[in-house]
């Protein structure tokens, strides 16, 4: 073959080749760099925190009566607190978020819809500490109420709404037009069409939004600092008394130097990340399954 020596198909210059190789290497390097923290963090948490998770007491007991020198104890009080606050948050945020998404997709035209959409974006960017301060100004500063779990939930609602709106919206937009039009053609009123056809089709998107939203709010710490003081004992009343949550359980002891307390910090962190990752993995799984169904 004459190719290697020919002039027409002469290989490109070495410097171009080199630049291309360097760029390729850089892209792979970026990917590796991005993976390092995730692996490192998970490794740290498992190495330092897995110990206590094997003990059934971790899942059933609180920290009541346990001091920094005592080994073990449980995280039940914090887990239940985190779940309760997240549940109440979802109960408020889901109807608002789904409603907003339906409005934007099914009814939203013109100025108001643009304003709503813009505000949802703004809400995405509101720092959690600002949301917490707002609820503080309202709940405590204005109504003179106490720092309780419900106030935390209210602040979390602000953070959860945009997640739900966006993920619901995405799914609603995938509902085929002709499905809607078929229903309209049959003389079904608009709200009935939405209830009976659009919502069930977009169901997986809504579920994904809820799960991703829950994952986000469960990991939030700032609203807890401002509005939800930590307690070592179990409290399931959102309207009275201090209530534990996993982030505040971590925060409480993070400056401790004694090993039993340090161990608990890492175990609580591992518990929290497990909770959050399971939720967000499930959420994405549901969205994957749902979108496969609609795309066919």
């Amino acid at each position: 073959m004459a190719t290697a020596t020919s002039t027409t198909l002469a290989p490109i210059s070495d410097s171009r080749k080199l630049r291309n190789h360097v760029a390729t290497f850089a892209m792979y390097a970026c990917f590796v760099i991005a993976m390092i923290p995730l692996v490192w963090i998970i490794w740290t948490l498992v190495a330092k925190g897995a110990g206590l998770l094997g003990d059934p007491h971790w899942w059933t007991n609180s920290q009541r009566g346990i001091t920094s020198r005592i080994q073990g104890g449980g995280a039940y009080h914090a887990i239940i607190g985190t779940l309760l606050m997240a549940l109440v948050t979802a109960l408020i945020a889901v109807p608002l978020g789904v409603g907003t998404a339906i409005y934007l997709v099914e009814y939203g035209r013109g100025r108001i819809a643009r304003a709503v959409s813009f505000m949802v974006d703004v809400l995405t960017g509101v720092p959690s500490i600002v949301a917490a301060l707002f609820i503080y100004a309202l709940w405590i500063g204005t109504f003179g109420l106490h720092r309780v779990g419900f106030a935390v939930s209210l602040a979390l609602v602000l953070l959860m709404i945009p997640v739900i709106v966006r993920s619901t919206e995405e799914m609603l937009r995938l509902v085929p037009r002709d499905l809607r039009e078929a229903a309209f053609a049959l003389g079904v009123p608009r709200w009935k069409t939405i209830m009976s056809i659009v919502l069930p089709t977009a169901f997986s998107g809504i579920v994904t939004g809820i799960m991703l939203g829950l994952a986000r709010v469960m990991g939030e710490t700032a609203p807890l600092l401002i509005l939800g003081p930590y307690a070592k004992a179990i409290n399931t009343n959102l309207f009275s008394g201090n209530m534990a949550a996993l982030p505040t359980m971590i925060n409480q002891d993070r400056v401790e130097a004694l090993k039993p307390a340090v161990d608990r910090v890492w175990s609580a962190a591992l518990t929290l990340i497990l909770l959050v990752m399971v939720l967000s993995l499930l959420g994405r799984l549901v969205s994957r399954l749902g979108s496969v169904k609609t795309s066919r």
């Binding site: 608002l96 409603g99 907003t100 099914e106 505000m119 301060l133 707002f134």
Partner: peptide, 19 residues
């Protein structure tokens, strides 16, 4: 539905106003 949308707008406005 529109109520929910407007509630979101109101919420952001309230954050600014209250602070």
């Amino acid at each position: 539905m529109r109520g929910a949308g407007l509630a979101v707008v109101l919420l952001v406005a309230l954050v600014g106003i209250f602070l």
